[in-house]
Structure formats: structure tokens, C-alpha cells
């Protein structure tokens, strides 16, 4: 899941960036509002973490402008202010959830997962597909009741396919969702991951539609 992180404080931003990556997210981190604002249109993000106290372009106006331009990505706002007004204004301006500083990394991750789950209309904490059970919280996969170990990117890919069942996912989209701009992507990376998933979970799990992409059919 790819997250857009906009936070001007270097230490907090760095912590969230590294930490969320460790927790299985793909993040792009921007330290100023202008760049962060533009970034949302340039990649398929699943959620946004937005600090309201930005020095150049204020977080609230970024949020309002996004919503005006029909960006529906779930947004988690970070407020330094403990006061209720700031949160209300934030939520009214289109935020989906908020966290007040000081917060814990684990809480940011949990809220992001909840937001993404809600936005993809997948409200159950576990996803079942044929003989496979996927637990988004713990990032674990079971096949016929037995735990199967997947690499982080494979997990991300599986989760993406499970959330977008019966939809053809192009190789480009998958690549963009899995990798941030900082990471180097090999041209056959997606194919390799699909190959590994099929090997571990069964050949028929993901179908290839030639020259278009991949699909997971019910």
C-alpha cells in the first residue's frame, strides 16, 4: 500500500517514513506543502498522512484543494494542537481521521490500515478467497489453515489483488502501488512477485490477461 507522507519536521518525517516502510507500507515523503500537494496527482496513493502545521502551504488548504479537485484518497491529519477546534475543522475540510502529537508510530499504521480498509469497502479484518485467508492486520496468509510465508512485496501485491477482485490490474498500476520513487524497480519485478505468489498459493490464484495485466476472479 502506497502512502503519501507530508511532514515538514525532519525527525518525525524520517521516523514515519522508515517506520511505515518497516510495517509494510510504501511511502513517499515530502517536507513541504507545495510538492506534497502536487504529488497526490502523480502516483496512485492508497492513503495520505498530512501534517497540518506546514510552513509554506498550510495543511488545511492542501486538503481542501484536493477535495475540490475530486481526490478521494483517505487522509489522516496530524495536528500538534490538542484543541478540539483544529480537529473539527480538519474533519470538516475532508480529513478521514486525525492524530494529535505526540502519537505512536503503531497508531499511525493501524489508522492507515483502517482507513484503507474502509475506502476499499472491505470492512472485515480478514479477507477470504477460495482456500486462502489473508489477515491485513498481521500481514499473514493461510492456505488450507496452514501459515504461508510471503515476502513483504508479495504480501502487498496479494493484498492489492484481493482488494480489487474481478478487476484487471495493469502492470504499471501494480508497480506504482508497490514501489516509491526512491526505490529502484526492475522491469520484471511484478512478474517475479506473481510467479512467487503462484508458487506458494497455487497456480490458478492470479490469472494473466495478456498485454493488459492480471486479474483475481471469484
Amino acid at each position: 500500500m502506497r502512502i503519501l507522507l507530508i511532514e515538514d519536521d525532519r525527525l518525525i518525517g524520517d521516523g514515519l517514513n522508515v517506520g511505515l516502510n518497516r510495517l509494510g507500507f510504501t511511502t513517499d515523503w515530502f517536507q513541504n506543502g507545495e510538492d506534497g500537494y502536487e504529488a497526490l496527482s502523480s502516483a496512485p496513493y492508497d492513503a495520505v498522512v498530512l501534517d497540518l502545521g506546514l510552513p509554506d502551504k498550510d495543511g488545511l488548504s492542501i486538503l481542501k484543494d484536493w477535495r475540490k479537485n475530486k481526490h478521494n484518497e483517505p487522509v489522516l491529519i496530524l495536528t500538534a494542537q490538542g484543541d478540539v477546534d483544529q480537529r473539527i475543522i480538519g474533519l470538516d475540510s475532508g480529513a478521514d481521521d486525525y492524530l494529535s502529537k505526540p502519537f505512536a508510530l503503531a497508531e499511525v499504521a493501524a489508522r492507515l490500515k483502517a482507513l484503507i480498509r474502509r475506502s476499499s469497502n472491505c470492512l472485515v479484518p480478514e479477507i477470504r478467497y477460495k482456500d486462502i485467508v489473508f489477515h491485513p492486520d498481521t500481514k499473514t496468509v493461510e492456505k488450507e489453515g496452514k501459515l504461508v510465508v510471503l515476502a513483504p512485496k508479495e504480501l502487498m501485491l496479494l493484498e492489492l489483488m484481493l482488494m480489487n477482485r474481478n478487476k484487471v490490474m495493469s502492470k504499471d498500476i501494480l508497480e506504482n502501488k508497490l514501489y516509491s520513487w526512491d526505490e529502484e524497480v526492475q522491469s520484471n519485478a511484478v512478474e517475479v512477485h506473481i510467479h512467487h505468489i503462484r508458487k506458494k498459493l497455487g497456480k490458478g490464484i492470479i490469472k494473466t490477461i495478456n498485454k493488459i495485466g492480471y486479474i483475481m476472479e471469484d
Binding site: 519536521d9 518525525i12 521516523g15 505512536a104 508510530l105
Partner: peptide
């Protein structure tokens, strides 16, 4: 906040 997050990292 930064210290808390960095500690978790």
C-alpha cells in the same frame, strides 16, 4: 513525537 516515533523505528 519525533523521539517517540524514532524509538519505535
Amino acid at each position: 513525537t519525533a523521539m517517540k516515533v524514532q524509538l519505535e523505528v
